[in-house]
Computed example of a mutant assay.
Amino acid sequence: MSTVYHPTVARLTYRALLGRRRAMILFALPLLLIVISVAVRMLTGADDSTAREVLSGFALATMVPLIGVIAGTGAIGPEIDDGSIAYLLAKPVKRPTIILTKLLVAMLVSVGFAAIPTFAAGLILDGNSQHLAVGFAVAAAVASIAYSAIFLLLGVVTRHAVVAGLVYALVWESLIGNLVPGARALSVQQWALALASKVADGGAVSSDVGLPLAVVLLVGVTLVATWFAGRRLRSLTLAGEE
Rank of each mutant, 00 (worst) to 15 (best):
P7V: 10
T8M: 04
V9I: 15
R15E: 12
L17Q: 13
R20Q: 14
F27P: 08
A28W: 09
L29S: 14
I36P: 00
V38A: 14
R41I: 01
L43G: 15
L43H: 11
G45V: 12
D48V: 12
D48I: 10
T50K: 06
L55C: 01
G57S: 10
G57C: 04
F58T: 15
A59C: 07
M63A: 11
V64I: 05
G68K: 00
T73L: 08
G74D: 07
G77D: 15
S84D: 08
I85Q: 07
I85M: 15
I85N: 10
A86Y: 09
Y87T: 08
Y87P: 01
P92V: 00
K94M: 06
K94N: 14
R95F: 08
I99G: 15
L100R: 15
T101V: 01
K102M: 10
L104Q: 09
L104S: 13
V105G: 14
M107A: 03
V109S: 14
V111F: 02
V111N: 12
G112Y: 07
T118D: 02
A121M: 04
G127D: 15
G135C: 01
F136R: 12
F136Q: 13
L154H: 01
V157Y: 01
T158A: 12
R159C: 07
R159V: 02
A161P: 08
V163C: 08
L166T: 02
L166C: 08
Y168K: 13
A169R: 15
A169E: 04
I176L: 14
I176M: 12
G182H: 13
R184F: 03
S187T: 07
V188M: 09
Q190K: 05
L193S: 10
L193E: 13
L195Y: 05
L195M: 04
S197P: 00
V199G: 09
A200M: 06
D201A: 14
V209G: 05
V215A: 12
V216L: 11
L218F: 07
G220P: 05
V221P: 04
V221F: 13
L223H: 11
A225E: 04
W227A: 11
F228W: 09
G230H: 13
R231C: 00
L238I: 13
E241A: 13
E241V: 04
